[in-house]
Simulated scan of single mutants.
Amino acid sequence: MGKLDGKVALITGGSEGIGLATAQEFVAEGAYVFITGRRKEVLDAAVEQIGKKQVTAIQADAAKLDDIDHVMQVIKKEKGQLHIVFANAGILGFAPLGSIPEKLFDDIFDVNVKGVLFTVQKALPILADGGSIILNGSIWGSKGTQGASVYSATKAALRSFARCWTVDLKDRKIRVNCLSPGGIDTPMLRTAGGTKESSEKVMNYLASMSVMNRLGYASEIGKAAVFLASDDSSYVTGIELFVDGGTAQI
Rank of each mutant, 00 (worst) to 15 (best):
V116E: 00
Q73R: 10
L97G: 06
A157F: 08
I68C: 02
R39F: 12
S142E: 11
E220I: 11
G141A: 08
K223T: 09
G37S: 12
Q81F: 12
F118H: 11
L124S: 13
Q249E: 07
E240G: 06
I108S: 04
V116L: 09
G141S: 10
E16L: 09
I221D: 01
T237V: 02
S234E: 11
Q59C: 10
G216Q: 03
G222V: 00
E78H: 06
Y217S: 13
I11M: 09
E16M: 11
Q54R: 15
H70W: 04
D107N: 14
P187N: 13
A225M: 11
G30L: 12
K201N: 12
S149L: 14
T237A: 05
D67V: 09
E197D: 12
Q54A: 14
A21L: 02
F227C: 12
F105H: 07
L20H: 05
V243H: 03
D5I: 14
G216W: 00
S15K: 00
S198G: 09
T119V: 07
N204M: 06
E29G: 11
D107S: 14
S233N: 06
I68M: 06
A123S: 15
S15Y: 02
G182I: 12
T247M: 02
F105C: 04
N112G: 10
T154G: 09
Q249S: 14
D231K: 08
S219M: 05
Q73F: 07
H83P: 06
I84Y: 09
F118G: 02
D231P: 04
R214V: 09
E200V: 10
A148E: 05
A123G: 05
T12K: 01
M188E: 13
G98T: 13
W140D: 12
Y32T: 15
N204R: 08
L65A: 15
P96W: 13
E78M: 10
F227A: 07
F227I: 10
A123H: 07
E240P: 01
G51W: 09
I75P: 00
A225R: 11
D67R: 04
R38W: 04
G216N: 03
P101G: 08
F161Q: 02
L206T: 02
V236N: 03
L215G: 04
L228W: 03
T166V: 08
G137R: 00
S142F: 13
L135P: 05
